[in-house]
Amino acid sequence: MFLGTSTKDSRRQFEALALPLLDSLYAAAMRLTRHEGDAEDLVQDTFMRAYRFFDRFEKGTHFKAWIFKILTNTFINKYRRQVKERALEDDSERATVSAQFFSHQATDAAANPEAHVLNRLTSAVVLKEIDKLPIDFRMVVILADLQEFSYRDIAEMLEVPVGTVMSRLFRGRKLLQKALTQEEGTELSTGTDEPLDLAEFRARKKLA
């Protein structure tokens, strides 16, 4: 039967490419929206838009970059207004990549491994600090550090120059390092670095 055959093939091809990325998309959506319901909606919208425009995807090219571009665009166009993010200050954009990447504080900590306890921070604390980043920094940190996209991929996704991507990434990391370094004391005193299972994590989050 002619009817539906192409639809079936298309569905199968789409699922083969997209479903393995579902967790990555959801993780990124969580960091962007900072809300489970919004993240699920964002992923669903992304999936459906990607499926609708799947015929425009050039086979053999970078599908993950393609669908993440849809994710970021959907977020920017729809969810960002709801989230009411703080706009970047103009001078933040002017920070140059040639400036020292790492603060003296971080360098000093690196020089003293005993005091450097980054690896003792729980995932929840790290994610909480990422979530606090202004959205333009957060987007590049999510895409570069959590999803491991190249500068060029990110520049194409966000439709900004590569230099802007590097500048935002530099600034975002710097803010994050500073926040996490301050967080270390709190983290050590709470002693809650045991891993949580998913159900417990969600239960706690709902209570919070």
Binding site: D23, A27, A106, L118, N119, L121, D145, E148, R202
Partner: peptide
Amino acid sequence: LFLDTLQAANSGVENMAP
């Protein structure tokens, strides 16, 4: 280590799609 920490945080079960 800093970048690995970020990666590790992102790979937790809480970031898996429900």
